[in-house]
Write a protein that binds this DNA or RNA. Structure first.
Length: 716
DNA sequence: TTACCTCGAGCTCA
DNA sequence: CTCGAGGTAA
């Protein structure tokens, strides 16, 4: 007999614990998801404490899906990155905020599917677009193992600890045995039944199931939370969305647990395929109903809709109900219901073609223009910015709104002292919509772009055909120097950790730093004299500078801040030439050979390196010890289609649209959207439309898929 | 663009 | 306690 056996739990305890877990799951589901408690709170608490007591006695029997495991857990050091098995894509936004905007979507779908006016209406699902944060919940063998934020769509953050505390999110999905009649199950089990068409149950829980949805905060919970915050002398949250986002990013799950979050499921990520015993669905709606049965909160407002008219009606109806919903939404989402049609429609770059977000018109508010500032960018570009009396609009306090350039400022005729309508356009950027002219009391001066740089006083000029004024001061202009330094020191460039805008302001204003190489000549004493810069901070900056000296060619090139050379172009240049000297001395024609470098970019690079002081900066940086590994120039890939422009139309027999496009681009060709004289070839498939007619009209060569492939293989 | 969380460190006052 | 910097999200 091993010693372990002495401590073996009573078989009764094991069974009782399983039983308690199941009851608590079921009651919890009724309470949190269905909002219909099946037992009094006191009874729930009693069961919960009984389970806790048993778990205290048998810690080895605690399961990750135990209801007691929602709260607790230790504060994290940080959030671990999580790669999404299926990327979390963004969804296209319909720009038209009239209810009839839905018609554009329907028309586009019908066109893509090649449907005529006499074909039947398309089956859609319409749902509210919740204003919260996207979340992916991963279940393995039915147990919640990971909750991840969206991140960049490919890689998000692991916030499982915090998401576990959400009572609405099942910790476990339960499947009854195969052949069980779902309707005969007691309600608390039926909620977890895995549905198949026809009521048949799934043989087992899918090995993998990722549920996608939105974490949000209800308005009443938000108000209550803020009342609590006020009482506790803590600061209040500005809006429910930010409160929810903040809660999710808490390192201490105990704090996250006190923030009342909610969840709505709206889709799936990775799922075990049917061949491997996974569930089968025909439509999105059916899938959502299954999610509901499995215990996930699915909004009652998710509706099926036939064709454009019902989508338009849905948009209007939800807009009507919006204020009374109890939570914030920023629009609605339409999805093609049939999963088969979704597959057929596919994706454009990173967005599904079968879904669209249709937002409500942005909220607008009145405020006054306190001033119109002119900011100077890294390249000397002058940007007029309206300084506004703070207004709360669309959930945030707006104090600035860019006027972009002189033409834009003139077109809107914004003047100091004006009363203006502001809104948060599109996603986030505040915008001055218009001026209320009848509120203009005296006649303030029309805004004009200063002909001198507001920072350095150099002439500001507007080139022929350009919208922007630029300060001609170059490095004489402290604003440009500051911006150049910040650009060089940013993370994606040469990364000098700890060098932010406040420090750069101090360094430049004090005249300690004028050029990039001056950064590396900084002394400890000079640094330590600055405000909020004692010994420790000064040393940290010096260490960061030392570390930054080891860099890479693309980072360095990007960091130089050459006009039109962003991260992608810097990478392409580095790959193509291998060495910096080769780039610095390359004639424009050589630069043009780099993928994605056109005449404007080539000229800009040439101009930059033709200036002696820029070459001097590079030499000095090298002399200061900034280095990077240099490589060999990449052999120029065979580009049989370079210089040729293609237009795709109709459905090709084997290649998808995206595939064909990628192949053409990989071979150096360009793919355009419409046919013109400059089009080299039109590639036509089945049911080609007007583009084919246009091609014939203009006498552009027409290819079929086979001929395209021949060209790609290097044929004439 | 704004808001939120976190971290390290400086400043201030006891 | 407050600030600056850095990161994330929409």
């Amino acid at each position: 007999m091993s010693t372990l056996d002495l401590f073996a739990p009573e078989p009764d305890d094991t069974a009782r614990m399983a039983q308690l877990r199941q009851s608590l799951h079921a009651h919890g589901h009724s309470y949190y998801v269905l909002d219909a408690p099946t037992v009094p709170d006191a009874e729930y608490d009693r069961l919960f404490r009984e389970l806790q007591a048993l778990e205290a006695r048998h810690p080895e029997l605690i399961t990750p899906d135990s209801p007691t495991q929602r709260v607790g857990g230790k504060p994290l050091d940080g959030f671990a990155p999580v790669r999404h098995a299926v990327p979390m894509l963004s969804i296209r936004t319909e720009t038209d905020t009239e209810a009839s905007g839905a018609e554009n979507f329907d028309a586009r779908i019908r066109r893509e599917l090649g449907l005529g006016p006499s074909d039947p209406a398309i089956d859609y699902v319409a749902e509210p677009k919740f204003d919260g944060l996207a979340m992916s919940l991963r279940y393995q063998q039915g147990v919640l193992v990971q909750a991840a934020t969206r991140g960049d769509g490919e890689v998000g953050e692991d916030v499982t600890q915090n998401i576990r505390t959400l009572g609405q999110i099942p910790l476990r999905i339960v499947a009854p045995a195969l052949g069980t009649d779902v309707s005969s199950l007691p309600p608390e089990v039926a909620h977890f039944a895995l549905g198949r068409p026809g009521g048949e149950t799934c043989p087992s829980v899918p090995a993998v199931l990722e549920v996608r949805g939105e974490v949000y905060m209800r308005r009443d919970d938000f108000e209550a939370l803020n009342d609590r915050q006020r009482l506790a002398g803590q600061k209040c949250f500005v809006n429910p969305r930010n409160a929810a986002a903040g809660a999710v990013r808490q390192l201490d799950p105990a704090i996250a647990a006190q923030r009342p979050l909610s969840f709505y499921a709206y889709g799936l990520g990775a799922v075990t395929p049917p061949e491997a015993g996974g569930p089968v669905w025909q439509s999105h709606f059916e899938m959502m109903q299954a999610l509901k049965r499995w215990g996930f909160p699915v909004s009652e407002l998710v509706k099926q809709a036939q064709g454009a008219p019902e989508l338009v009606a849905y948009y209007a109806a939800i807009g009507q109900q919006r204020d009374g919903l109890g939570f914030d939404i920023d629009g609605v989402v339409y999805k093609v219901n049939s999963l088969a049609l979704q597959r057929q429609l596919g994706f454009v770059t990173r967005e599904p073609r079968w879904a669209v977000a249709h937002k409500f018109p942005a909220q607008e508010m009145l405020t006054t223009v306190l001033a119109i500032d002119v900011q100077v960018g890294r390249t000397g570009k002058l940007t007029p910015v309206a300084k506004l009396a703070p207004v709360f609009v669309g959930g945030v306090t707006v104090t600035n709104a860019t006027l972009h350039n002189e033409d834009e400022a003139r077109r809107k005729d914004v003047r100091v002292g004006d009363t203006v309508i502001v809104r948060r356009a599109g996603d986030v950027i505040p915008e001055v919509v218009s001026v209320l002219l009848d509120k203009r009391l005296d006649e303030p001066a029309v805004f004009t772009m200063p002909r001198q740089c507001p920072v350095c006083g150099s002439a500001a000029v507007r080139e022929e055909g350009e919208a922007d004024y630029r300060c001609t001061g170059g490095l004489f202009c402290s604003a440009q120097r500051k911006q150049s330094l910040l650009h060089f020191a940013q993370r994606r460039a040469v990364e000098v950790e700890g060098l932010g805008d406040k420090l750069v302001d101090q360094l430049v204003d004090a005249g300690i730093i004028n050029t990039l190489p001056d950064l590396y000549r900084l002394g400890f004493t000079a640094l330590a004299k600055l405000a909020r810069m004692a010994d420790k901070s000064a040393q940290n900056i010096l260490d960061a500078l030392e570390k930054s000296k080891q860099t890479t060619l693309p980072r360095f090139l990007f960091g130089l801040g050459i006009r039109h050379v962003g991260e992608a172009t810097a990478k392409a240049l580095a790959r193509h030439f291998g060495k910096l000297d080769a780039i610095m001395d390359a004639p424009e024609e050589a630069l043009l050979a780099v993928a994605d470098v056109g005449p404007i970019v080539a000229k800009s690079i040439r101009t930059f390196f033709d200036q002696a002081h820029n070459r001097e900066v590079v030499e000095q940086l090298r002399a200061c010890g900034v280095t990077w590994p240099e490589g060999e120039p990449a052999p120029v890939a065979a580009q049989p289609l370079s210089g040729q422009t293609f237009v795709l139309t109709g459905t090709l027999p084997t290649l998808g649209r995206e595939e064909a496009k990628a192949l053409i681009e990989a071979a150096g060709g360009k793919v355009a959207g419409s046919v013109s004289k400059k089009t080299s070839f039109v590639v036509a498939g089945a049911e080609a439309g007007s583009k084919l007619d246009k091609a014939r009209e203009l006498g552009v060569a027409v290819l079929d898929e086979a001929q395209l492939k021949e060209l790609l293989d290097g044929g004439a």
